[in-house]
Computed example of a mutant assay.
Amino acid sequence: MSQADNWSTTARRAYFGLLEDWNRQDAPALAARFTERGSLVGFDGSQVDGRACIEAHLRSIFEQLPTPLFVAKVREVRRMANGQTLLVRAIAGMWPRGGTALDPKLNAIQTMVLSLCDGAYRIEVFQNTPAAFHGRPEEGERLSEELRGVGKPHGL
């Protein structure tokens, strides 16, 4: 495996691991992927800073409702100039638990920044932005179609 494949694979594992933790509603595991001072920007615009606060925020969400399940596709992995920072750009959709179809209203554009900390890449920032495409419904449908091609989430 080349060095480029190695950091790209590492970034993809971190990204999909985060989504798997969400799908399992495992707040401690998900929060542990962040640096101590990491930041999370949620779908509703919530900004949560710090690993402990991220865990508490997610625990509260998971206790309140059965969150939909993520499916996603990585569009880009980029190694930044310093070589110790990785950028992941992805698209994501969500299936209601027990549902039979993707809910297009929950489609998102996601960005993750990872940095090398004590020999492991950890999340500095994860942002989950609604893919609203105001005034451009055809773009929203194209995104939904692409996400349907990913398939159903594990455990559905």
Rank of each mutant, 00 (worst) to 15 (best):
F126C: 01
L69I: 01
A92T: 00
A14V: 06
V88K: 00
A56H: 08
I91R: 11
Y15K: 01
F43R: 10
Q127E: 10
V113F: 04
R59I: 09
G38E: 00
A52K: 03
D118C: 11
R12D: 06
T9Y: 06
A29V: 02
R142H: 15
V77H: 01
K73R: 04
R79V: 07
A32W: 00
E20H: 13
F70Y: 11
Q64K: 15
K73I: 03
H57L: 07
D26A: 03
T111I: 15
S144Y: 03
E20I: 15
Q25P: 08
L106F: 06
T67K: 10
L69C: 08
F43E: 08
L102R: 14
V48N: 07
P104C: 15
E36D: 05
S60P: 07
M80H: 11
H57F: 11
H154N: 02
G140F: 14
I123Y: 13
A72T: 10
E76H: 13
D44W: 10
G83W: 07
N23A: 11
L106C: 00
S115M: 09
H154V: 02
I123P: 01
G135Q: 01
S39W: 00
C53Q: 07
A90C: 10
C53L: 07
S144V: 01
G45E: 04
A90H: 07
A132D: 14
R142C: 13
P153W: 12
I109W: 13
C117K: 14
P137T: 06
L156G: 13
I54H: 04
R12G: 00
A31Y: 09
E146N: 02
A108E: 04
S2Q: 02
R12E: 00
W7R: 05
A108D: 13
R136L: 10
G93W: 13
A11R: 09
G155T: 14
G119V: 10
D103A: 15
M112L: 14
G99F: 11
G45S: 08
V88M: 01
L40W: 15
G140Y: 06
P130V: 08
A131W: 09
A101F: 00
A132R: 06
A32G: 15
K152E: 06
T10E: 03
F16W: 05
A29Y: 02
G155L: 15
F34G: 11
G42L: 10
D5L: 06
G38T: 02
P130K: 04
L30Y: 07
N6P: 03
T100E: 15
D103M: 04
F70P: 02
E55M: 05
T100V: 12
G140E: 13
C53D: 08
P153D: 04
N128D: 06
D118V: 05
R136K: 10
F34K: 01
D5I: 09
N23W: 02
L114D: 05
L58C: 05
L102M: 03
V77M: 06
I91T: 05
G83D: 12
G99P: 09
